[in-house]
Design a binder for these strands. Structure first.
Lengths: 189, 189, 189, 189
DNA sequence: AATGAATGAGAATTCATTCAT
DNA sequence: AATGAATGAATTCTCATTCAT
């Protein structure tokens, strides 16, 4: 091997892609991504075989990043609500701290370029939340629903909450609490 | 007058656009839309000055269509929950009956081609739901939140619910009820 | 015949074409010409079979208009120089009075859409100037040249003169005289 | 560096553009220019950002080419008439030798796609002729005119002369002399 | 491996002309 | 005859991908 692939370049491409996709959607030109990443147009394709591969990979990395954020410092021994709130808080904080990641993720999620395989992989990676959700929904309105549904509802309310926080950052705390309450009461109540 | 602009053609273009945008996103080629609508490439532009105008108009029409569906048969005199459930049911039914409209609407909603003006118009048109939401949230976790937040949460949970129904149509009834309960309890509980 | 062609409409189209071609060149859209003329897009084609026919006809009309202007009040009995100056003055005055006609004529003249036939017709119509030019060039530098060459030189100097007058209208008189002198001395001197 | 921009390709595009614009005017399709230049459609746009840029650049290059031709071998020490005739001869020879360049230049000159900036640049480049023209016109009919007017008249007579030479190449010598005489006498006489 | 020029298949419009009304 | 909607070929420019250097 003449020169090994550089992890730095790969990361730079993914980071540039995050910004550019957040801004321009999935139709963002690879040339712009390459330029913002500080590499040549062609170089992008030595790291990702095609634009679709880049987008799918980006989707996965963003999702993993979010999952890691949500699980960091997970208070395994604490009460159900504490654990749930931990996940929720990390979720909202991640989205507030990295608005581009969130916007990019959303663009990718509705795009037809994300393969079923990618979605499956993400589903697996988020499987660990199913246990929490199962526990949450052991009684209440969600009692008979699959944990993935509960999980999706949390995600949906979380997204909405982040939208409002993005628009009114000063009310972040209030929305963050209200969103969680709506979810928690709705699911366990 | 020569040939008047044909309402049929306009509708055909919007319907074709709905399908094509649902499938391919906002980057769907106008040529494909025109072809599916059964008109010539150029004809599309006598009905809509540009692709952006078409997309914005489509967004508005879809939103109005949804609003009308939600308000049809609104049981003004009934209990808050009945009225709320009416809106919810119509929302879910609309999304289930017209999956393309729903998918197209979602593509448009995240796209940067929808102008602020369009969003404002939609906001106005959905203003009547604010009153309902305000009433819903007169007590409970959402007590101090703006009605638009409550409304957005209902929309988010509804979307999630429709996703699951689309994937498991046989469980439609169950998801529809569970989604509503999660919302209702979460907001009023 | 149901309704006779209207001379007014024909004239309106030609006048609109003059303005539009002056401004946008021969690639000016027929739709714009029609609109400015106050007629429908299709109507233009009942008066002129094609855009090319319109352009050629316009070219001819403009040239005839110029020729008529140059010959109006021609002082047949006066001296050679007086007659020549008359033609020159009318030429410059016409161009100054109708800058659009002049610009349109120039656009048409360099365009590949004017047929040889049109050019021939114009040549014939300007044939009467050949006699004058022949007389002018009976001695001097132009002695042995065809009158059409002398004529073309007058036209060229005239055009240049009009360009400068258009740019510095206050110096109109000076340029007009200087241009004539250059021509007259150059040809007869 | 990867493949450097090829001066050959750039030149090929400009040469193809010269021919095609001479033949079809400024509305000549870029696809035809690219094809004639032996490059792909898209390649044209890596050398020129837009068609307008290509046209402006072509205009400049043609003008510079003409200026260089006119100044090559300029007999600085010789008499005013000799120097003037030198410029004239080179002018006519250039136009006769490169009829496409001349036609293209004319198309561009009347087109509205040439920017004021381009015209200004050309004006500067031809400024050195002003000195010659000033000297020419130090007495005679043009005594009180700006050198640019004298220069424009030379250009106009030259153009006319070239037109006639193009139509009757056998009389080239005669027209060339007659044209010069008309100019020279007209300006200095 | 890295570069960026080269490619050519689209993409959104435009527009002369036709034709239903 | 007049209208203006309908047509579809043509146009400029973009962009994912390839490949010479």
């Amino acid at each position: 091997m003449a020169r090994p692939l550089s992890e730095d370049k790969r990361t730079a491409i993914l980071e540039a892609a995050t910004e550019v996709v957040a801004m321009l959607g999935v139709s963002a030109p690879t040339a712009k991504i390459a330029k913002d990443a500080g590499v040549a147009d062609g170089t992008l394709f030595t790291y990702f075989a095609s634009k679709d591969e880049l987008l799918n990979r980006l989707f996965l990395e963003l999702k993993m990043d979010l999952r890691d954020a949500m699980m960091t410092g997970y208070p395994a021994g604490k009460s159900l609500m504490d654990r749930n709130r931990h996940v929720w808080d990390r979720f909202i904080d991640w989205g507030s701290a990295y608005p581009s990641k969130r916007r990019a993720m959303r663009q990718l999620a509705v795009s037809d370029r994300i393969t079923e395989e990618s979605k499956r992989l993400v589903g697996n990676a988020f499987g660990e939340f199913d246990d929490i959700m199962r526990e949450c929904a052991s009684s209440g309105a969600m009692r008979l629903q699959p944990p993935s549904f509960v999980s999706a509802i949390m995600s949906a309310i979380g997204d909405t909450t982040m939208d409002f926080i993005a628009r009114e950052p000063r009310e972040a705390k209030r929305y963050k609490k209200a969103g969680f309450d709506a979810f928690w009461v709705g699911v366990t109540g």
